[in-house]
Design a protein around this nucleic acid. Structure first.
Lengths: 108, 108
DNA sequence: TTAATATGCAACTTTAAGGTTGCATATTAA
DNA sequence: TTAATATGCAACCTTAAAGTTGCATATTAA
């Protein structure tokens, strides 16, 4: 399997999955798979696959309740992505970006 | 085409592309396509494709110099991803995560 | 000017991702 | 107990992504 951070980035790289995750976060509680899939045009099975991907990435958790499965968000893994990004903050704040130092060293 | 943020997430979701980007960032200057591809096991053409993807996402820029093409990093687009993530910071800091409010409302 | 280097373009293969359909099964409502 | 609901499992299709190879071309070094 791929590394954790790749798995996380891939999970949120899909717009449908970001929507599902966001819906769960703002709901603040849990939604069943049917409730989620009703909000999308794609089939329930398609949504189930997305949910599995999000679950594998740790971004959602599932709780069985009778015949239903409730999903709720877990934003904690995003901390790792934030850590990854933090490193680059110093670079995106550079007014010149790397072009500056590149041009300084450019062979003429 | 897909939206900007999806394009960015997909660009950095690939581990090889993250490596290329990181190498360019820490180099602080520019590297030619050959110099980059020499650091990887995959073919030059494979690297060229990754570079194209990174360029399309705005994460690197290219500058032609004779027969060479120099790539340099541009971290600025990551700001957008950071903005996306910032929203969820309040949730990953919750000690209880959404499980708490979910259980509170769970039908018994 | 000949050879080596750096690259682009295009076609191709392989694998993974997103999505569908059909069917089986467990749970709950009528 | 019969019907409706919520779901899983598995097979399948389609498209896109990752990566390759071969060849053409421009630039630079010998």
């Amino acid at each position: 399997m791929q590394d954790k951070i790749t798995q996380l980035f891939k999970a949120i790289a899909d717009p449908t999955r970001r929507e599902i995750f966001h819906a769960l976060v703002i709901t603040g509680s849990a939604l069943s798979i049917s409730q989620i899939s009703n909000q999308f045009d794609i089939s329930r099975q398609g949504i189930t696959k997305h949910i599995k991907t999000l679950e594998d990435a740790g971004l959602i958790r599932l709780d069985n309740k009778g015949r239903e499965r409730f999903c709720y968000a877990n934003a904690k893994p995003l901390k790792e992505l934030n850590t990854w990004m933090k490193f680059y903050e110093q670079f995106w704040n550079d007014s010149l970006d790397n072009l500056g130092s590149y041009l300084d060293n450019k062979p003429s």
